[in-house]
């Protein structure tokens, strides 16, 4: 009887643990027909705001707490593009860092005023360990992120 109970518990636990490791595809799937290199996309992002696009690259950052965003490295040096979902819509695993990913979705423009731009740039400068002069920022900036409908993390 005890053996049966142990087996039942092991199956339950195993199925729970199994569900946490299996999924590497999220959402509706990716469409390679829309593939655009990140460097091309970021060279003229306003041209792509209306259409679905697919990007490909190495995952170099993942939201540690909620798994609600990932940063994808561009084919251009030092350039990245963030993929952002609503909390819980897709949960990207922290262990995905360093793997290749494909993501299909809509490019979104985040337009900041001058004050916000200075705060964001100050934050980035602090992270990079660089000096920052707020007065040097005189133009508001626009940042771009991909809101995906499908993401595939390649093992």
């Amino acid at each position: 009887m005890k053996t049966k109970q142990f087996i039942a518990a092991a199956i339950l636990l195993g199925s729970l643990v199994g569900t946490s490791q299996a999924a590497t595809d999220f959402g509706e799937g990716v469409n390679r027909d829309y593939l655009v290199p990140v460097s091309i996309l970021m060279a003229s992002p306003e041209d792509y705001l209306e259409n679905a696009v697919t990007i490909e690259g190495t995952i170099v950052g993942v939201c540690e707490h909620r798994g609600c965003w990932m940063t994808i490295a561009s084919d251009k040096r030092f350039q990245t593009l963030r993929i952002k979902v609503k909390d819980g819509e897709m949960v990207f695993p922290l262990t995905a860092r360093g793997k290749k990913a494909l993501a299909t979705g809509q490019l979104q423009a985040l337009r900041y005023d001058l004050e916000q731009t200075r705060e964001i740039k100050a934050h980035y400068a602090k992270e990079a360990g660089e000096a920052f002069d707020a007065a040097s920022v005189t133009e508001p900036m626009t940042m771009y992120q991909l809101v995906p409908t499908g993401v595939s993390i390649l093992d």
Binding site: T58, V60, A73, R77, F78, G98, K99, A128, G129
Partner: peptide, 10 residues
Amino acid sequence: KSSFWQNKNQ
């Protein structure tokens, strides 16, 4: 798995 230069210092 892979590596990445965030900028010229990192």
